[in-house]
Design a protein around this nucleic acid. Structure first.
Lengths: 342, 342
DNA sequence: GTGAAAGCGCTAACAG
DNA sequence: CTGTTAGCGCTTTCAC
């Protein structure tokens, strides 16, 4: 494995010059620079990251902490992985993946060993154990998702309070009075006895209820365990049977649920959008490929991850305050005409 | 950040002793050992990985190269991520994630920079560009999936030839003569002009055809683009309309497809398993939660990743030959009674 | 059972 | 515009 010394010798310059050629932190005569690059190429030289880490005290690696819950939606998760990697690469950072049930113990081992410059917490639950550690850690943490105890924390997320509010407003403005809210059931993590809801369902639900009360609207809430056709049929058939008065629907579910709901509602004589108005919240996936165009307020993994990375870099550079920064992203409402005046 | 020096000073021993206490490569008096650990704990000391890398020439990090194709199934993908992380952690390795479309260029930058001790290639296509690089690289590569050019390569995968063979055999032995094969459409990657099929569909298809010919069975092949209810209904209704003689079905699709197929077949008067026999290949997901129990030959992400890690470690330790090792894992047939005698 | 010291590859301060 | 050199934190050989 060729080292900087070899390159220096071969190109007839000193090692510091080679270093400066590669870091670009000092101007080097073009001719020399070319000779150095040439030599490096010939020798197959790459700077040794270990040495750089040691010297610079920076690894340019972030940890992505991704616990698996019973309700974890892998599709959404993968989207965040990919977007996080993209965001990190844009800033020349690498991503170390920590995932799974045993995630916790692994975590302890590395978090302070200077392997990573910072940590991004994915899928932060309403009361997440990791938050305690975040506050004691020697490297900056950024939480994606807002936990209950968000004091003194760097966190990014879509503003789900606003999501709920806007969803209700849209339906209310079109005259809907009786609304069905369907959330995916993820109330209890199999492992812990605590209620560790994924934070955004919690926040959306609360904000929907509050806004509905404010506008004098009735919200019927149900949770769904399965997103397959027959589960959806049972759920919706039952609900609309008991509550014929429902005209609008808000879903916070997988895209499969929505897809099946389209079919079921058609079947029970309440087609979207003619007889049922609908908006899908916190969705991710190829929504535009559904047989019926559906309004949505999507998850924004790209925006969230990008912002998370920004905040992390800021904390590393000491530009931003190292803690206590909560950034709520403005949600997007995509109007596809699935809400009709009633 | 406390260093080994600080620990040495505080515990009144030399730095080499501290080092030996942590590596365990030399016996140290119990009393001393305790003093060292105590001091380390008090100072919050963790060995600096950068320095260890520099010194040992090993980073204990592997790269996981995960390109995104148009047909990428995120659920399956995430499963491999998680299993790979688990397998790596078992061997005290970390996992650096490389994912996305721009994956390639990123890849070049790091692959030889001593950041990783080895590379695992995920979702290797039938003719995958990454294979060339694998052969020239200075660190060992392990391919998950078999590319066309598998010469001189370390690769692990389920034996999909056997999967196809067994599926046909099972149906044949129950007297089925006319079989429908449904594959997920992933024939062409949107980005490249080449046909870059995910390798296993290619291999399953070929082996099914061959075995069917051998046993005098007719296989009708179709590809599916959508796995949602209406797509599935169209596809199956059409197919069974034209080929009333079909009694058996082999799917290599998402679990959603299978779920919808159960409903559709019921609807068109060909319920599983009474009138239609079925086996699902290369599946991953909560198959046992389907409304009808379905035979399957699942993907084995845990086994595959575990074996990949083993081979990688072998290559690193120079125990195994550094190249040319192809390991095909024996598939499992899970019999749930969805194949009936005809 | 323990310590002293060389050196891994790199960066950057200092010197020219 | 370029070179010399100290030192980052660790492991390991050699010496006791």
């Amino acid at each position: 494995m060729a080292s900087i010394k070899d390159v220096a010798r071969r190109s007839g310059v000193s090692i510091s010059t080679v270093s400066y050629v590669f870091t670009g932190k000092r101007s080097v005569k073009l001719e020399t620079r070319i000779r150095v690059f040439e030599a490096a190429r010939e020798l197959g030289y790459f700077p040794n990251v270990g040495a750089q880490m040691l010297r610079n005290g920076r690894t340019h690696i972030i940890a992505l902490s991704s616990p698996i819950h019973s309700y974890t939606n892998f599709t959404n998760y993968a989207a965040f992985f990919f977007e996080m990697v993209r965001a990190a690469h844009r800033h020349h950072f690498h991503v170390l993946l920590f995932a799974g049930e045993d995630e916790d113990e692994q975590f302890v081992r590395f978090a302070d060993s200077n392997l990573v410059d910072g940590v991004v917490l994915l899928d932060v639950a309403w009361n997440d154990e990791r938050i305690q550690r975040a506050k004691l850690a020697s490297v900056p943490y950024v939480s994606i998702g807002m936990p209950m105890d968000s004091e003194n924390l760097i966190a990014v997320d879509v503003d789900f309070e606003e999501v709920g509010r806007v969803a209700i407003d849209r339906l209310a403005e079109s005259g809907h009075k009786e609304i069905l809210f369907v959330g995916s059931d993820q109330s209890v993590d199999s492992k812990s006895k605590d209620v560790t809801e994924s934070n955004y369902l919690h926040r959306i639900t609360a904000s929907i209820q509050a806004q509905a009360r404010r506008r004098g609207i009735t919200v019927h809430s149900v949770l769904t365990k399965g997103d397959d056709y027959s589960s959806v049929r049972c759920l919706l058939a039952d609900t609309f049977d008991q509550h014929d008065e429902i005209t609008g629907m808000i879903t916070q579910t997988s895209i499969e649920f929505v897809n099946n709901a389209i079919g079921v509602l058609q079947l029970i004589g309440r087609p979207i959008p003619e007889r049922t108005s609908i908006v899908s919240l916190a969705s991710y996936g190829k929504t535009e490929m559904l047989p019926v165009q559906i309004d949505e307020m999507p998850l924004l993994p790209a925006a969230v991850c990008s912002k998370a990375m920004q905040l992390l870099i800021g904390a590393l550079d000491g530009e931003a305050p190292r803690a206590g920064h909560i950034e709520l992203l403005h949600p997007t409402y995509i109007d596809r005409g699935s809400i009709r005046r009633v």
